[in-house]
Write a protein that binds this DNA or RNA. Sequence first.
DNA 1: CCTCCACAGGAAGCGCAGGAGT
DNA 2: ACTCCTGCGCTTCCTGTGGAGG
Length: 403
Amino acid sequence: MSSAERVLDEILARAEESSIFTDRDKLTPDYVPESLPFREEQVAKLAGILVQVLRGYRANNVFIYGLTGTGKTAVARLVSGRISEKARELGRPVDTVYVNCRMRDTEYRVLADILEALGRPVPFTGLSISELESRLRRVLEATGRRLVIVLDEIDYLLRKQGDNLLYRLTRMNSHLQRGSVTVVGITNDIKLVESLDPRVKSSLGEEEIVFPPYNAPQLKRILEERARLAFKPAVLEEGVIDLCAAIAAREHGDARKALDLLRTAGEIAEREGSPKVTVEHVKKAQSQLERDRVYEVVSTLPLHAKLVLLAATRVATARGRATTGETYAEYTRLAQALGLEPVTARRATDIISELDMLGILHARVVSRGRYGKTKMVTLAADRRSIENALRDDEVLSRLLPPS
DNA sequence: CCTCCACAGGAAGCGCAGGAGT
DNA sequence: ACTCCTGCGCTTCCTGTGGAGG
């Protein structure tokens, strides 16, 4: 089934009465649960910092980091949500804004979102960045409001636009007579933050909160809690939650992954018309998620990366593994067959390393003595999933027989 | 112990596209 | 409209290297 069909399927499945779910959305990544098990410490710390705005002071900037699926977003949303509720209750001039920098990955869009949250919407284009910035300053100055800006997945913004906006936001306070700005930055890429301008780094890092990965028993508790909200009673077979937790624990304790597995397993069970979600459904869910991931990664690869991947796949299938030299030779043949000028071997080795980092190939450097040093390449993903994704490329489809 | 294979992977630079500043 | 700048994909040139075979 293509991913388009699957999406359609999913939507239509929700139209009819479900035999499995009571509320499937409780398992989606953007649901913010009311309680966050094993994150009491982080919630308390963040709340302790941000509560200053309710007392009429500027709160310190906060920098939050941890791997994917460790609850960073959920904690930030929960705390900032409660802060603004409390502010309304007490009639305090406080605003909180949540911006996901992956979706809003330019300075303009981030500032536009902030202004919109303050009730000062701006056109989606046409103004300069500095105009938006001075509008923001004027609003804060005029109303004396204390603003908390949560910038989630801030690494996307940094990669694309640099740290300019961050620098100006954190510095804005020194120009304000009234009101204030607090920035809560969330990231899972610590390396990127190391490369920040030291001034930004020190002002954003006034406070730091670390989110460690969950272990298997913790994931289990989290899943059990969510399952109670999402599934009809007793539809989960023995061992289903344990398996989801175990798989996700193996992948650096990623709670999102665990929830994805459980939700997808439920969806598969529903589609099959099964009255129960079984361990088998979880296994199917795992391979479906893996297929989707491979497709997503492979189909967005540039042409020559796809060709190198195809070459490596062919050699590895024929011989069990492939060296850089073998892969490059095969790649050159493929490129020429398509009338393309091949990239150099130097570039090809980089492409192989990139494919390794994407988790599509394994590339291990080995020395074979007399026979030189090379990278041994094997497939890190299912061969058919890879070929499937490659076949969808217009140029490459001629090289692959239809399935 | 030394050699020397078959690459790994660093450094520098080039052409290009796209965005910012003027 | 124009320059200037930057990042990206890539090439060219290069030095480095683990260990089987001599």
